[in-house]
């Protein structure tokens, strides 16, 4: 294994990690702020991809506009789902179980709606022409699009960190994770905050769906396929922890990337192994915030 190959493999792992993170980030945000586990997060990812396909491939719009519209649509749908349905079960006894049940019903419904609108044929979305090539440097070849994806992932981490720490909205979101009652006493509309956060998270998932579409096929059933991997990332990163999710995604991506080279037959086992080991030795997640902040 020579040096340039190691670098190539590292970058490959990074690409995988970025997608993992982009999907998981919304999941961890919703969990952090509202203690809601959105099992249907992958379905919003799928919806985003289909809407992006509609704009880009059917209506011939610009890729980045399609990306925006895919995200916007998924976000709106997420807000509708939260406002009309999820909100009704907050505070119920055994809320966790009902969250799974309710969001699972979203998966079932959205799957069939997608089928009704777009059928079951595989859909395809072209990359923006500017990013279709590859960057070659000292024997290392990396597709431009992958580089762009990694950059977007980084931008999302930094932007989210900045927004959460330096804006009023971010402070409210963080505060509602700590003490909702107090926040509502202070005159903040907590339910509305939750709807908005849900919207942002699902919009992120939708945008990721469009971003991933040129590298994958847009197919029905994608919602359920991505959810377990994202779940692993969220738990490893420490529930509700943005930076943690990014680092956890990185860990899973790189472990996978090198497992493929070293033990190709058992590579798919590793993400579960990492999760099991982590939870046994550090149950609160690898990158959990300090106890003080979690309260």
């Amino acid at each position: 294994m020579d040096f340039s190959f190691i670098v190539v493999q590292l970058i490959s792992g990074l690409t995988m990690a970025t997608f993992l993170f982009l999907i998981a980030s919304g999941l961890t945000l919703i969990f952090g702020v509202g203690k809601v586990f959105n099992f249907a997060h992958g379905s919003f990812f799928m919806i985003g991809a289909y809407v992006g396909y509609q704009f880009s491939s059917v209506w011939g719009q610009n890729f980045w506009l399609s990306l925006l519209c895919g995200g916007l649509f998924a976000g709106l749908l997420g807000m509708v789902a939260e406002f009309f349905f999820l909100r009704r079960i907050y505070g119920r006894a055994d809320e966790g179980g009902f969250q799974i049940l309710l969001t699972y019903s979203f998966i079932l419904i959205l799957d069939d709606l997608v089928k009704l609108v777009w059928g079951t044929e595989y859909k395809s979305l072209a990359k923006p022409p500017a990013l279709s090539g590859a960057i070659s440097m000292g024997g290392i070849v990396v597709p431009t699009y992958n580089v762009a994806v990694i950059a977007i992932g980084l931008a999302v981490v930094v932007a989210a960190w900045w927004l959460l720490n330096n804006t009023r909205g971010g402070r409210i979101a963080r505060a509602s994770a700590l003490d909702r009652e107090m926040l509502s006493v202070l005159g903040v509309n907590v339910p509305m905050t939750m709807t908005l956060v849900f919207g942002i998270a699902t919009a992120l998932a939708g945008m990721t769906g469009v971003l991933a579409a040129p590298l994958r096929s847009v197919t029905p059933g994608a919602g359920i396929e991505v959810i377990i991997d994202s779940l692993i990332v969220v738990v490893l990163g420490g529930l509700g922890n943005f930076w943690g999710a990014w680092l956890a995604a990185l860990l899973i991506g790189e472990v996978n990337s090198f497992a493929i080279v070293l033990v190709p037959k058992w590579a798919t086992l590793f993400s579960y192994l990492v999760m099991a080991l982590t939870l046994i030795f550090k149950p609160e997640g690898l990158f959990a915030p300090r106890k003080v902040r979690r309260v």
Binding site: L102, S105, I109, D111, D112, L116
Partner: peptide, 19 residues
């Protein structure tokens, strides 16, 4: 063949209506 839509809707209604 649209079982998933129907079962999903039934589930949704049950969760909301039968806590």
């Amino acid at each position: 063949e649209y079982w998933s839509l129907i079962i999903g809707t039934v589930m949704l209604v049950m969760v909301l209506g039968l806590p």
